[in-house]
Measured scan of single mutants.
Amino acid sequence: MSGIALSRLAQERKAWRKDHPFGFVAVPTKNPDGTMNLMNWECAIPGKKGTPWEGGLFKLRMLFKDDYPSSPPKCKFEPPLFHPNVYPSGTVCLSILEEDKDWRPAITIKQILLGIQELLNEPNIQDPAQAEAYTIYCQNRVEYEKRVRAQAKKFAPS
């Protein structure tokens, strides 16, 4: 494992614990031996107030490669969400998460999670990743928002 990646992720964890947006979660997972795995984080993004996503808490896994922060983490909703920019596998399609697009090593975990929260309610229809959600979003916004509200209710924190 890269010392650069681990040191950056340790800084990220410290900064997150000191200050993070209300309702968001970002925690490194534990290895079988109980030690912390900084390369694999369990996160959760709350649906934004005043949107059909409100009330939901959407679980996301963030996986970092050894060359982080040169390369972005892979962000994957578990379980996958109904959304035009979420692949059926759950992987998020967002330009700041793509090395050859808008990724920059200075982007923080907090910025990534806030960017994904923004994307939930403002899909990028130029870059669809899920045919069904994309089609319904474009053709029947009322039905799309109904499905999103049902999903938010399903993923409401207990």
Rank of each mutant, 00 (worst) to 15 (best):
I4G: 07
L113P: 04
P32V: 11
R17F: 01
S70P: 05
Q151E: 04
S89E: 14
Q11G: 08
Y137F: 09
I96D: 11
Y137P: 00
F24Q: 02
V25H: 09
L94M: 04
M39S: 05
P28N: 06
K76N: 15
P46K: 06
D19L: 03
P79F: 12
E145M: 11
N85K: 03
A133R: 04
P46N: 07
G50I: 05
P28I: 02
A10F: 11
T35E: 00
F24C: 08
G56W: 01
C93D: 06
P128K: 00
A152L: 01
S71P: 06
K48G: 03
D67W: 06
A5S: 13
W53S: 00
F155V: 12
G23Y: 09
M39P: 06
I136P: 01
I107K: 05
N31E: 11
E12K: 02
R147M: 12
A133L: 07
N140P: 10
P72V: 05
N40D: 14
V25K: 09
Q139S: 07
Q11T: 14
Q126M: 11
D33G: 02
K59C: 13
Q11A: 15
Y144M: 00
G115I: 00
K153E: 14
F22S: 04
L113I: 12
P80Q: 09
G50Q: 10
R17G: 02
I107A: 13
N85C: 04
A15Y: 15
Y134S: 11
D127Y: 12
V92T: 07
N37A: 15
F155T: 05
E132A: 10
E12V: 03
P128V: 00
E12L: 04
P123L: 01
P123V: 07
L63Y: 09
P123A: 06
E132I: 06
V148Y: 03
F22M: 01
G50L: 10
I45M: 13
N121L: 05
L120R: 03
I4K: 06
E98Q: 06
T91Q: 13
Y134Q: 05
A26R: 03
T135S: 11
I45K: 01
K48I: 07
G90N: 02
G90H: 01
N121H: 09
I116L: 15
Q11R: 13
C75Y: 03
P21K: 06
G3K: 10
I136T: 09
E98F: 08
V86Y: 05
A156T: 11
K153I: 15
D66Q: 11
G90R: 01
M39W: 08
V148F: 00
Q126V: 14
V92S: 08
L113D: 03
L120C: 05
I116W: 02
R149M: 09
R104A: 10
